[in-house]
């Protein structure tokens, strides 16, 4: 006869057990994240940026790619930021119609900045998804299968890991940028693929390490002892327990991809400028830095504004990543 020794509810001390809400590890982590002010500020900032990216056509005062018709005659003449007065050449003095001025082609800098958010968001998230998918798949197979397949996959991973990535990007860009494939989405697809092709290696190493340690855990042995099939063990028991570090890794991939795109565009081999007004990704912050650099003396605002935009989105993602790590793994 089993004793009822552990049953709650028989005295006041244990009665409260019944009223406590269920807490999963995820809801615990969310609670910890919410207490992290910097991470929460980052989330809000990134959420606002996402809105800006989605509603860019509504928010941007002008077309980012070409001067609006009334200003056509001013083509070739740039304007300073709104608060700068150019006494020698009044045509160049800032007006509030173009708060951050216009570029040499007559494009509105603020509007370009707003549209640039789109590229940064897309360039951050899509390669992250690619990278994680490849990395998780290879890491799971490698760690779970073990043996020869594991050795083979890991040697391949080592090779990818040791590639000098900037050099790799430059080669890929110069080789493919003029092909139809290289021009898809202004060259964004090529950037996504080349970034993911070299960055999954660290994810797959991380996942494999997690799988190897989880495989030895008693709850996995218990599942095996109960007769759970291997596939279920992998997807029900192992994968959910690797998600926390994967999420953290993902949060750090995003800023790295954003910086990579900016770097490539700055080198002139990133996304290609497009004057087609229907193109959703007409310009990027990296490109603006490149232009801003050549106009640093006459129009410092182009460089400064785009550099601040890149720095702040990167810092926000890094802060979020740190916050996620603290929240998901409270032991550290």
């Amino acid at each position: 006869m089993a004793t009822a020794s552990n049953v709650a509810g028989t005295n006041p001390a244990q009665a409260q057990e019944f009223t406590r809400p269920v807490r999963s590890l995820w809801s615990d982590a969310w609670m910890r994240l919410r207490r992290n002010r910097l991470a929460m500020a980052s989330i809000i900032y990134l959420f606002l940026l996402a809105l800006v990216a989605i509603f860019a056509p509504v928010i941007a005062p002008h077309s980012p790619s070409r001067p609006t018709t009334t200003e056509l005659r001013e083509r070739g003449v740039y304007r300073q930021a709104a608060w700068v007065v150019d006494e020698k050449n009044p045509k160049r003095s800032g007006i509030w119609k173009f708060p951050l001025g216009t570029d040499s082609a007559g494009g509105d800098v603020l509007s370009r900045l707003i549209y640039g958010t789109r590229v940064s968001m897309v360039v951050g998230f899509i390669p992250m998804i690619f990278t994680l998918s490849i990395g998780i798949t290879i890491g799971l197979i490698s760690g779970f299968a073990g043996g020869k397949l594991d050795s083979l996959l890991m040697r391949f991973t080592d090779i990818i890991f040791s590639l000098p990535d900037i050099l790799f990007f430059i080669i890929v860009q110069t080789a493919f940028s003029q092909t139809a494939f290289g021009k898809t989405f202004n060259g964004l697809l090529l950037i996504f693929l080349s970034f993911s092709a070299v960055n999954w290696a660290s994810v797959s190493r991380l996942v494999r390490g997690q799988v190897l340690s989880l495989k030895e855990k008693e709850f996995v042995e218990a599942a095996e002892a109960v007769g759970v099939r291997r596939g279920s063990i992998l997807f029900r028991h192992i994968l959910p327990n690797t998600l926390a570090p994967i999420i953290v890794a993902g949060a750090f991939i995003v800023p790295s991809a954003i910086v990579t795109e900016a770097t490539l565009s700055f080198l002139g081999i990133g996304i290609q400028p497009d004057t087609n007004p229907n193109n959703p990704f007409p310009t990027s912050w990296g490109q603006m830095i490149l232009e801003g650099k050549s106009a640093i003396d006459s129009q410092p605002w182009i460089l400064i504004a785009s550099a601040i935009a890149i720095a702040s989105i990167t810092i926000a993602f890094v802060a979020l990543g740190d916050g996620l790590r603290d929240a998901l793994d409270p032991r550290q």
Partner: peptide, 12 residues
């Protein structure tokens, strides 16, 4: 006490 707790368990 065990008898009492068992009764309480059944009730619960």
């Amino acid at each position: 006490k065990i008898a009492e707790e068992e009764a309480a368990l059944d009730a619960a």
